[in-house]
Write a protein that binds this DNA or RNA. Structure first.
Lengths: 260, 260
DNA sequence: TCGTTAAATTTCAATATGTTAATGGCGATA
DNA sequence: TATCGCCATTAACATATTGAAATTTAACGA
């Protein structure tokens, strides 16, 4: 609760992770296209940087929207909770993600940390002023939102039209594509997933028991292994096939391509 | 195929629907904040206006992205189709919706018309130039994307965590909130829905048979009636309750408030 | 007007998934 | 060290939803 730091990015000295995340938010291309004055304005905004422990809330669903947040490091997820307590995880988010931006007066979703996270926040007012001063930044934000929307669409299609096995395989593929991978052989790689099976269930619209059952079956089939926090991709072609990719796509070996 | 019209908005004379849709895209507030020069640029862009019959495709999933589209009139939906033919409708879209904007090289979704539609299109290149020249427009686009993302999130939660009855009631509430309503009594109103039960099923992740069954049950219970294209909301409090709203929310009579 | 096709409807059996409950492991905490 | 709670796991059982098949109804083009 007391780990707040009010500062601007320029004044952060050695601790450049915030500046890095802002660059991440804007993307290298967008950065170049920015006027020096715009970049100055952006970096001298009064960001509030905070460290938040695992399993805590960054944004509460339903609260009035006051600040936007940029995730600087760590894992978190966005979720909606229904009045009867059922929870839907909308997506997992990593460093560079813009959170809490929207036109509705209250937050339509909550954000909770999975691991310890560092977060930079700025009042919506100030953020909008930044956007109106720098079209390049506004466009970058719009494109980020498109990416996020695209992932939401894929996720929706999984929820609506794929069975449990396909959904789980698909989630593994997505996370493998978005997180660091330890490659071993051409087919075999492993990744550190700090998520519980309850979270997987809440993300995929499944009960945790069923998640457990199906992960077990995928393990029996020699596709993946999931012990502790480490997920082993034992046969990535099979995994891609399980996730619904066509035979050719499955053989273009996406996962390793990213790891390499 | 031959119903193309190349024109700019200014030159359209009496036929102001395009200009109206652009204003819709930007919103009245954003319009005011625009410099006259920006507005000029926007309106004199070389929009391509087209009329498309019902049941036709505006954007094909997987094709390379070339233009953005603004729906000027009519109903359409965005969807993703899996390799095995299963289809997920992502959302229904109406006049003013921006379609086809994104950072990925190919269209991640397709767009099909439900009724006859008028559509204005512009090359992505030109649209991005517009955005970079007018921050107000870029911000407006970003906020539109947020709205769209918010609806996608609600939809995801329905798909993942609600049963068929709640999903159908929820969809009716959403469509009632987004389309013109004919009010009759304080509880009774009706709306014209040009959608088939197959579409409803594809939107909600259900088989058309099940949609039919559940709509029948909601009709038996005196909540709604669905004959032809007309959907009657017989008891809006009950409908809101079925859709998962709390007792108090259900009694604040959202639907009629919008109709009034 | 007819003939053709899509949409809505109803039945039934098959099944994927949820629910409830009980267990053991494991780390946090007093 | 003992306790507590979270997480993973497994089982038996309940049920919502799918899928196939057959029928009716409505829409549409020739």
């Amino acid at each position: 609760m007391s780990d707040f730091q009010r500062c601007n990015i320029k004044a952060m000295g050695r601790d450049t992770s915030s500046a890095v995340a802002l660059q991440h938010l804007m993307g290298p291309a967008a950065l170049k296209s920015l006027e020096a004055s715009d970049r100055d304005r952006l970096e001298s905004a009064r960001w509030l940087v905070r460290t938040i422990g695992k399993g805590r809330s960054i944004i509460d669903q339903g609260e009035t929207r006051e600040s936007i947040f940029i995730l600087l490091s760590g894992w978190a997820f966005r979720s909606q909770t229904l009045s009867d307590g059922k929870r839907q995880i909308l997506d997992f988010v990593f460093a560079g993600t813009l959170l809490g931006f929207g036109s509705c007066a209250t937050n339509s979703y909550g954000v909770e940390t999975v691991t310890e996270c560092r977060v930079a926040s700025l009042s919506i007012q100030q953020f909008k002023r930044l956007l109106s001063q720098s079209p390049a930044l506004a466009i970058e934000v719009a494109e980020r939102l498109c990416d996020s929307e695209m992932r939401a669409h894929e996720h929706m299609t999984s929820l609506g039209r794929r069975n449990a096995r396909e959904r789980i395989a698909g989630l593994v593929v997505e996370l493998a594509a978005r997180t660091p991978i330890h490659a071993k052989h051409s087919l075999h790689c492993s990744l550190e997933l700090p998520v519980t099976q309850v979270m997987i269930g809440d993300a995929l619209g499944l009960s945790n028991e069923h998640v457990c059952r199906v992960i077990g079956k995928l393990a029996e089939a020699g596709v993946i292994g999931f012990a502790g926090q480490t997920l082993e991709v034992l046969d990535q072609h099979a995994l891609l096939r399980e996730a619904g990719y066509s035979e050719e796509e499955a053989h273009s070996a996406k996962l390793i391509a990213i790891a390499a």
